[in-house]
Amino acid sequence: MSTTADLVQALKHELKTARMTYADLAERLGMAESSVKRMLAKGDMPLSRVDAICRALKTDFAELARRVAESQPLLKELTLEQERAVVRDKKLLLCAICVLSQWTADQIVKAYRISETECIGCMAQLDRIGIIELRPLNRYRLKLAKTFRWRPHGPVMAFFREHVVLDYYAGGFDGPAEGLLLVHGEISRSLAPSFLDRLQRVAQDFAQQHQADQKQGTRDREGYTLLLGMRNWEFAAFAQLRRPDRASTVRTTA
């Protein structure tokens, strides 16, 4: 949530952009310049005063509030409690995954057996959790950074490991534009991070292409799930066959 300090900071930014001094603002408000400085320094003012300042700046409170909201830092990760709230309800989790893909409420309702009322309710919950900022007409602003990820050992990833991973890998990966790569090898520890960087860039390219292709008709698009991973790992059954003097150094990329 935005704080009073954020609102005051936004007002100061608007004054600077408008090249309006405290003296100019004081004159338009019918106040002493010292009173205006003290008011903005303390951030102690009624909403009627904020409205008056907005009028002096030729803007309105709704526009100012929008700018304050958009200036808030985007989330790179949710808290444990936020993730628990997401996985508590499958329909809420579904809506969370959909908004991460920038689906509209109408698209969600048309694609899944979820009513408009249920969808709006889920979006209201996602707003309270902090994933989106719900706006009029069921539009929203995603409050997650491009580098956002679910907590590696959090509730959401635990849910996916238990219920989703086997379902995903049960496919043959032999359809159009499908594939599954499993590469084993030992590489320099100093170079390993560069491979992870490449995987992250591929994921970002995929996400950006998804955004760009929203302009195309639904008949020209197909749903794909890209799953990338890299870890220092060896299959447990193989590790049991290791000689005692040979530590596992196999890195696996999938």
Rank of each mutant, 00 (worst) to 15 (best):
I131F: 13
P176L: 03
N138D: 02
V183I: 13
L134R: 10
V87Y: 11
K143R: 15
L134V: 01
I132A: 00
V50F: 02
I131M: 15
Q72G: 11
S48K: 04
G175M: 08
R135T: 09
R219Y: 00
T17R: 14
G30W: 06
D197F: 02
A170Q: 11
M1A: 08
D245S: 11
A177M: 12
Y140H: 00
T59N: 06
H153P: 02
R88N: 08
A5V: 02
L94F: 09
E186G: 06
S190Y: 04
L191K: 09
M1R: 07
L25Y: 00
L80P: 04
T3A: 07
A65E: 10
Y140V: 00
R201K: 08
E83C: 00
D205T: 01
T147N: 10
A207H: 04
D51H: 05
L74C: 08
D6A: 14
T3I: 02
G223L: 03
E81R: 13
V87S: 13
F148E: 15
L15G: 11
A10I: 07
A26S: 09
L74R: 14
T4V: 13
T17L: 15
D60V: 00
Q9A: 12
E77I: 04
H153M: 10
L142H: 12
L226K: 10
D6P: 03
R67N: 07
R243N: 12
S34V: 14
M123T: 07
R139K: 05
T225Q: 12
A5C: 00
V156L: 10
E33R: 10
E118G: 06
L40R: 04
G172H: 11
E222N: 02
S34L: 07
L47N: 02
W150F: 14
D24V: 02
T249Q: 12
L92D: 12
R141S: 15
P155K: 10
A105R: 05
V68Q: 00
A32M: 06
L227W: 07
E70H: 05
E70T: 00
E81F: 06
V165Q: 11
L40Q: 08
R231Q: 05
H163D: 05
E178R: 08
L94Y: 09
L11Q: 09
V250C: 01
E63W: 07
L191G: 00
D24F: 01
N138S: 01
N138A: 01
F173P: 07
V8E: 02
M45F: 06
K42E: 10
E63H: 09
R141N: 15
V8P: 04
V50G: 01
E222A: 10
S194I: 02
N232W: 12
H184Y: 04
F238M: 07
A236R: 10
T79S: 15
E27Q: 09
M1Y: 02
L57C: 12
E186T: 05
D127F: 03
I108D: 03
Q216P: 00
P193Q: 15
F235V: 06
Y224F: 13
R221D: 13
K12L: 15
C95K: 09
S194M: 11
S101Q: 14
L137G: 01
